[in-house]
């Protein structure tokens, strides 16, 4: 079933703030095996010009994906979320995410396409800090694979 094209351009209200903690950054850096001191040592981060430890580039996905999932699970959109796989991911950074940030995500459906029975939805998430500054924009392409013929 083709998805409702009227959802293209729809923007969802900002999410509640996600507070970035030093220990959460450390946990993420350890999970990806990345020993860069800028992720765990405030002095090392400061020596690079950052006011506190910064997060690895893909850390913010945990925040933006939660918002994107709310969007694609909108029952009115009608996407079969159980068949969804991650197609593409892109980030554009104004500055790195850092400890102490309180981040909100505003998600917009950019495009909806159907290709060979697959439903493809592109969601843009704009991540702002407490002062309203844009920190990072995340683009997530989700593909709901065609259901097998019954």
């Amino acid at each position: 079933m083709a998805l409702d094209q009227s959802f293209v351009g729809r923007t969802y209200p900002p999410t509640p703030a996600y507070e970035v903690g030093r220990e959460k950054i450390r946990e993420f850096a350890e999970a990806v095996g990345d020993a860069n001191p800028a992720y765990v040592d405030p002095e090392a981060a400061e020596a690079l010009g950052h006011p506190d430890v910064i997060a690895p580039p893909t850390f913010v996905f945990s925040v933006t994906f939660k918002a994107a999932r709310m969007v694609v699970q909108d029952p009115q959109l009608g996407l079969d979320y159980s068949r969804v796989v991650h197609g593409d991911q892109k980030f554009a950074y104004t500055r790195p995410v850092r400890a102490g940030d309180r981040l909100t995500v505003t998600s917009t459906i950019e495009t909806i396409k159907s290709l060979a029975g697959n439903d493809i939805v592109d969601v843009r998430g704009e991540v702002h800090d407490e002062s309203g500054e844009l920190v990072v924009t995340a683009w997530t392409k989700l593909v709901a694979r065609a259901a097998e013929e019954a």
């Binding site: 010009g49 796989v85 197609g87 892109k90 950074y93 500055r95």
Partner: peptide
């Protein structure tokens, strides 16, 4: 050295 030097990053899975 500085992960904050990354301005854009994208991939296709």
């Amino acid at each position: 050295g500085d992960p904050g030097a990354v301005v854009e990053y994208g991939v296709r899975f």
